[in-house]
Amino acid sequence: MSFMQIKDLKVHYPIRGGFFNTVVDNVYAVDGISMEFEKGKAYGLVGESGCGKSTTGKSIIGLEKISAGSIIYEGENVTNKRRDRASAYNRDIQMIFQDSHSSLNPRKRVQDILAEPIRNFLKLTPQEESRRINELLAIVGMPEDARLKYPHEFSGGQKQRLGIARAIATNPKLIIADEPVSALDLSVQAQVLNFMKDIQDEYGLSYLFISHDLGVVKHMCDYISIMYKGRFVESGTKKDIYDNPQHIYTKRLLSAIPDVTPNGREDRKLERIEVERNYQAEHKQYFDENGRVYDLSPISDTHFVAATSSALKGGN
C-alpha cells in the first residue's frame, strides 16, 4: 500500500508583461503528473534538461509552490503546507542535492551540519544528539574525527555522503535524490550508489531518483517515469520501460544512450537514424496539435503510455 500519493500535480510559473505587469502567460513546468510511493521502492524520474524533473522534486518537498493538484501523505493533504518543525511530513521526506559542495554550509562543521535536522525534528538531549551524529557518520562510513572538520576538507564523494547522512538523520521514509551522482567520477559514483542501495535495504527507504542518466536509473530504480515538457510520456516498471518501450520519445531516449561495447555500433547508429525518422513521422500520434503530451493510458497493470489509442494499436 502506498504511503504517499501525488495527484495531478501542476507547477506553473507566471510570465508577466504588458503595461500593468499582468500575467500574460504561464510556463507549464510541471503539468499534471500523478505518482504513488510505496515503502522500500525506488522511483526514477528521467528526462532531458528543462523537462521539469527537478521542479517536481522541489515541489514535493515544498521548495516550489504547487499551482494545482494535491499531495496526500498518510491520508493527510499536505499540499502547499508551510514548512513546519512539528510536521511529520517535513521530517519524513528529505532531499539529497546534486552539488554536494554548495548544499553544505561552508562555515559549519560537520557535526553542526548533521545536528541541524536532528535539532529541528527530534527532541534529543545533547548526549543523545552526539551519539546520533556518531551513528550517522558510521552509517556513511566516515571516521568520528570528521565531526570537527569543515566541508571543504572532504572530497566530492565524501561530501555527497555527508549530504546523505544529513538526509537520513531523521529516519525519513522518502528521500528525493536530485542527480546525486552526476558530478562524481565513475568509481566514486559506484561507491555512492552502492551505499544508497545498502541503506535502502537496511532502513526500508523509498527513493525518488531524479536523473538524466538512464544507466544509473536502471541500476537503482524499480519504477521509472519518463518525463517530457512537464508531463509523463511513459511510466512503468524497469522491465516495461527498457524491454518494451512504447512511446516514441522513450524509444528515442533509449536509442541515444551510448552502449559500453564497441561491437555493433554501426548498427546502433542506423537504428538511431531510423528512430529519429519515426519520431518525426509519428509525432502526431503522440503529441496533440499544441505539442502537448497526451494523458497516460494503461496498456498493462503497471505500464502506462501517453498516446492516442491508434498509436498504441500500431505499437502492439
Partner: peptide, 14 residues
C-alpha cells in the same frame, strides 16, 4: 563500476 544497462542491481565495483 559502470552501472551498465544490462546489470540488474548487482553491486558495483568500488
Amino acid at each position: 563500476s559502470i552501472p551498465q544497462m544490462n546489470s540488474d542491481g548487482k553491486k558495483l565495483n568500488v
